[in-house]
C-alpha cells in the first residue's frame, strides 16, 4: 500500500484515477498472463502450490494426531501445551524464516544437508508455521467431539488411544476447515519463504515472493495481476474443498 501512495505522488494524475488505472492495468496484466499461459507464471504458480501443498500435507500428518493427543490424553503439562499451541498459531513468518534459516545455513545444525535456498527449505519453514495452526484447531475439534462420544466409545470398548483415529475420522468435516486455515496461511505468507528460499528465479520464486519483488521493482500492475491470480487460486481451492465437504456432510449428516 505504501508503494502505491508513493507512486501516486510521483505521477501528476489524481490518486483516484491512478488507482483505477492501476487496477485496470493489473486485471489486464493478469488476464494477459493467464491467456498466454505465460511459462514463467505457470512455473511460479506450480512451485507455490507444490511448496504449500507439501507443507500442508506434512503439517497435517504431524498436527492432526498431535492436536488429538493433547485433547484426549491426560499428562502433566497438557494445559501448557494447549496454551503454547494457541500462542504458536500467531508465529510471525519472518521469525520462523529466520530460525529455519539459521538451522539450515552452512554453520547451522542442519547445514550439512545444503538445503538453504531450495524448495525443501521453504516447505520446512511452512511446516513450522502451519503445524501449530492445524494442531491447535484439531485439539479444539477433538475435545468437543470427545465430550459427545466419550461414554459411547468407552462403552463399546475403546480407550483414549484407540479413540484417537476414530475421532479424527468422525471429525473429518470440521478438520478439513482446520487444514484449509493452514493452507491459507501457508500460501499467503511471504516472510518465511523469502528468507529461506531467497526468491531465486526458476528456483525458489513463488507467488508471494514474486509479488513482493514486482512491488519493489515498481511494476505494480504485474504485482497486482499476480495478486489476483493468487486470490483466485486460494478461492478455487477453498471453493472446491467446501463443495466436497458440503456434499459429504449432506450424505452423513
Amino acid at each position: 500500500m505504501a508503494m502505491v501512495e508513493i507512486q501516486d505522488t510521483k505521477t501528476v494524475k489524481g490518486p483516484d484515477t491512478g488507482n483505477m488505472n492501476d487496477f485496470g492495468e493489473a486485471i489486464r496484466a493478469a488476464l494477459n498472463l493467464l491467456i498466454t499461459f505465460d511459462s514463467d507464471l505457470m512455473e511460479i504458480v506450480g512451485l507455490s502450490l507444490h511448496v504449500s501443498l507439501a507443507a500442508i500435507f506434512i503439517a497435517s500428518i504431524i498436527g492432526l494426531p498431535l492436536g488429538a493427543a493433547i485433547a484426549l490424553f491426560r499428562f502433566p503439562g497438557r494445559r501448557f501445551f494447549s496454551v503454547l499451541l494457541n500462542a504458536l498459531m500467531g508465529l510471525p513468518p519472518v521469525v520462523v524464516g529466520l530460525i529455519v534459516y539459521l538451522s539450515l545455513s552452512r554453520s547451522g545444525p542442519f547445514g550439512v544437508f545444503g538445503l538453504l535456498y531450495s524448495p525443501t527449505a521453504m516447505i520446512i519453514a511452512q511446516v513450522v508455521l502451519v503445524t501449530p495452526i492445524i494442531a491447535a484447531l484439531t485439539r479444539q475439534v477433538i475435545e468437543d467431539l470427545w465430550m459427545e462420544y466419550k461414554d459411547q466409545l468407552l462403552s463399546l470398548g475403546a480407550n483414549p488411544v484407540s479413540a484417537l483415529p476414530t475421532l479424527l475420522w468422525d471429525g473429518r468435516f470440521s478438520l478439513v476447515t482446520a487444514i484449509l486455515a493452514g493452507f491459507g496461511r501457508a500460501s499467503a505468507e511471504v516472510g518465511a519463504v523469502m528468507i529461506v528460499g531467497g526468491n531465486i528465479d526458476h528456483m525458489t520464486r513463488v507467488m508471494t515472493t514474486a509479488i513482493a519483488l514486482e512491488v519493489s521493482k515498481g511494476d505494480l500492475a504485474l504485482a497486482l495481476g499476480l495478486g489476483i491470480i493468487l486470490l483466485c487460486l486460494s478461492l478455487g481451492v477453498n471453493g472446491a474443498v467446501y463443495a466436497v465437504k458440503e456434499a459429504a456432510i449432506r450424505r452423513h449428516a
Binding site: Q152, S155, W169, D170, F173, A253
Partner: peptide, 11 residues
C-alpha cells in the same frame, strides 16, 4: 450398554 442417547459414528 445402550446409552439413553446412543451416539452413531459418522459412517
Amino acid at each position: 450398554m445402550m446409552l439413553q442417547r446412543p451416539v452413531m459414528l459418522r459412517r
